[in-house]
Amino acid sequence: MLDPAIIFAGVLNGLLAGGIYVLVAVGLTLIYGVLHIINFAHGSLLMLAMYAVFFLWRLLGIDPYVALPLVIGGAFIFGFVLYRLLIGRFSHGRDENILLLTLGVSIVVDNAALLFFGGDTETIAVPYAGTFVELGAAFLPLPKIISFVASVLLCAGLGIYMAKSDTGKAIRALAKERHGARLVGIDVDKLFAVSYGIGIACLGAAACLLMPTFYVTPSSGYAFVLVAFTIVVLGGMGSFTGAAVGGFLIGVTESLGGLFLGEQLGQIGISLIFILILLFKPTGLFGGGR
């Protein structure tokens, strides 16, 4: 039997990891909730954002956390423009076209990254990388604590924005009833692009929070996007709260599974909890009956 102090440390590690999962999953679920499509380019765009953070640090010496507003803004504009110029324009309103377009974007982005950035592992060595907080048996690296706090604040901020702002309300209306939203004068096409932009901005934030403790290669986005898909389905597709709760749940499950079953078998814990939840609630934790 594992020492309770180790289990406690494992839970903390899981929560810290979950913070990042939440951000990636929130972006994915937001895009699904509004556009009703799975964004297959999510992993590739996360990777692109991570390269942006890396080059801002490498070329301009900008700390990844200082780069947050810059990358979030840049990612929003990139997502907005990508939707306006490519996805929205060539999908002709058909969901299957959007799927193919996002898949195509991911292939192009992945290979362009390989061509221009090479396949090497790129990392950021921040001066505070070795600073940690000791909490019982847990040694929590400062960058992971910052990432966790920032992730929670960003998600809370986004939640408030979606609940209180006019744009947020319009996006929610659009997610619930597309035709009704159009009838009351909401610019649906613009809001699609805004929603896609916000989803990609979440990836920008995740990239900034990831880079002090992770690495980037042209395929590194996929390490997170698969788990994000799991979280989105687990939490309820399109549910903002579901993505947040699911992210932390998966983080802790993965961590404890690793402790009890070993790092490889630990991944079974994710599948197990995924199956169990869907067995008793097929629409996910917070999913509606769409």
């Binding site: 020492d3 180790i6 494992g10 590690n13 590194s220």
Partner: peptide, 19 residues
């Protein structure tokens, strides 16, 4: 201790090693 490729997080392995 075996791990997959890719592995997102080595925190638990570090914890295990420490213990």
């Amino acid at each position: 201790i075996a791990h997959d490729n890719p592995t997102r997080n080595f925190d638990n392995i570090a914890l295990r090693i420490r213990s």
